[in-house]
Amino acid sequence: MTTTWSRSRLATGFALAIWAASFWFLIGADRSAFYFSSRTTWLAPVGAVMLTAAMIGRFLSARVSRPEPVTRRQLGTLAVLIIPALVITAFPPAALGSYAVGRRTTAIKGAYVSMSGDLTQGDLSLLDIFGLSYNGELDQLAPRAGSTSSFTGFVTRDPTDGADEFRLNRFMISCCPGDAVNIQLRIVGAPPGGFKADDWVRATGRIYPIGSEVIVDATRVQRVRRPKHPYLNP
């Protein structure tokens, strides 16, 4: 019996190949941290392997006894399937920034269990501060008032900020940037006009929990490169 290539199956195999390549590219280019949290990063290799296996299977089974042309509807479906994969891989990796700070809620419900551990000594982290803030326990930081800590994040400005002030932000993700929650500190005593929105900085200074926010009286603010892992994971 003579067989021929099924265009329909080849087309589906092609879509699978594009997606498989996207996952392998994410892994190879070390871009996983832009899309996955440490808890879900295993999905990238799983996706790559499964899509590759499905692609191979589809190509191996693409010889058929009767022609199977590609319909216009299938072409439309293929376009819908392929375009997102191309968009993900074609653009340079980006992390949520100042635009997202203005769009993401601060009214978090059912969010995260407290990440704060022993706060009486050692370095304070942004996760510690978020854990306390989320549970309404910022007053536990009172004994640490005036102690020095360092924090890394990106800059945003609030209309109420003075010339030597800005907000230091860092997103925390549980599974992916889709569920990102912003952690924000107010930095005072920074060089006026030295930093613009979305600049990544490391701010070192004395911390003061006041009301519902934490203020850092900066002794040193330096511009840094965006971290390899731009998001924090609880």
Partner: peptide, 13 residues
């Protein structure tokens, strides 16, 4: 693009 891509990449596997 970031949110769209991340939701897709979690879900497809």
């Amino acid at each position: 693009r970031i949110i769209f891509g991340s939701l897709l990449l979690q879900a497809i596997p």
